[in-house]
Design a protein around this nucleic acid. Structure first.
Length: 277
DNA sequence: CCAATTGTTATTTA
DNA sequence: ATAAATAACAATTG
């Protein structure tokens, strides 16, 4: 489920519920694959008794910071979610990690277990966090960096290239389709075939969709929408991409679905032509 | 039983 | 050797 805006949504859920609180207990499903490379017993030991100091989201990941130099990383994979439950919550089958505070139980649920928990103890943030590419909304995400990247991936479909996290951190399947639809670029076009004008439009729409998605899905300030898709406007491709007989919100013509870059891709043939106009 | 799912990574192919 | 395509991972749902 989660792409960049969803990661921010779930981060805020834990943060607004329990930032500043003491962790009184940590519950783990020790056999769960989300702990690959991490020892759940060590996480329990290290976090119990600490205070939850703050958090950040970047790309599709979240970093939670605790007193004593403890850092908890969460990647939600395909089916992960974070919730804040009342105290006394009893973990269910797929609740692989629960941080207990006086007022809430912070739950990480992930049925498919493509998600991941990482842990680090130290003064500064761990390398697996700091090496994440600069955010789409930051000044470091430049037109030139996109242009160079597209040239290096010239023979791959642009849809597949947008999914590459080392240049487009946090873009997943639906965001890639939304960006290409807004930019009026066919997902099958090879990255190296885009005109300089198209590359600029694509770059601008990456930033635009990232900003819109963050505002609409994760809210602003201390406001958190009641659920992920609560405020998504009908004008977005997002709300029509899985409908049977779905229509393009801009052209009112039928949408098409086809596998591109290994993912089911939705686009509007009337708007996104194979040959540039 | 078959196919599907908003992700990542190892392996295979070109 | 490099880059792109494919399979695999796991669980659930239709």
């Amino acid at each position: 489920m989660p792409e960049l805006a969803e990661a921010e949504f779930f981060r805020k859920r834990w943060d607004l519920a329990a930032r500043g609180s003491k962790i009184s207990a940590v519950l783990t499903h020790d056999r769960a694959k989300i702990y690959r490379g991490t020892d759940p017993a060590a996480v329990r030991r290290a976090l119990t008794g600490t205070r939850f100091l703050g958090s950040e989201a970047a790309a599709k990941q979240m970093l939670f910071r605790f007193s004593g130099g403890a850092w908890l990383g969460v990647h939600l994979g395909m089916s992960g979610e974070l919730r804040a439950e009342p105290p006394g919550y009893v973990p269910e089958k797929h609740d692989h990690l629960v941080l207990v505070t006086a007022k809430h139980s912070l739950v990480f649920k992930d049925p498919r277990m493509f998600g991941r928990v990482q842990f680090h103890q130290g003064k500064s943030a761990p390398a697996w966090w700091t090496k994440i590419a600069p955010a789409l909304t930051s000044d470091a995400f430049t037109l030139e960096s996109v242009s160079i990247f597209l040239r290096r991936r010239a023979r791959a479909p642009i849809k597949a290239v947008l999914l590459m996290q080392e240049r487009f951190p946090g873009i997943g399947n639906w965001m890639a389709d939304e960006i290409l639809w807004r930019a009026a670029i066919n997902p099958l076009r090879l990255a190296g075939s885009l005109t300089p004008r198209e590359v600029r439009t694509l770059w601008r729409e990456c930033r635009h969709v990232a900003r819109l998605a963050l505002d609409v899905i994760a809210g602003e300030g201390d406001y958190l929408p009641p659920d992920l898709n609560h405020h998504i406007p009908k004008t977005w491709l997002f709300l029509h991409r899985w409908e049977d007989g779905g229509l393009c919100p801009k052209t009112k013509t039928p949408l098409v679905r086809q596998e591109v870059g290994g993912r089911t891709t939705c686009w509007s043939p009337a708007r996104q032509k194979l040959r540039p106009a």
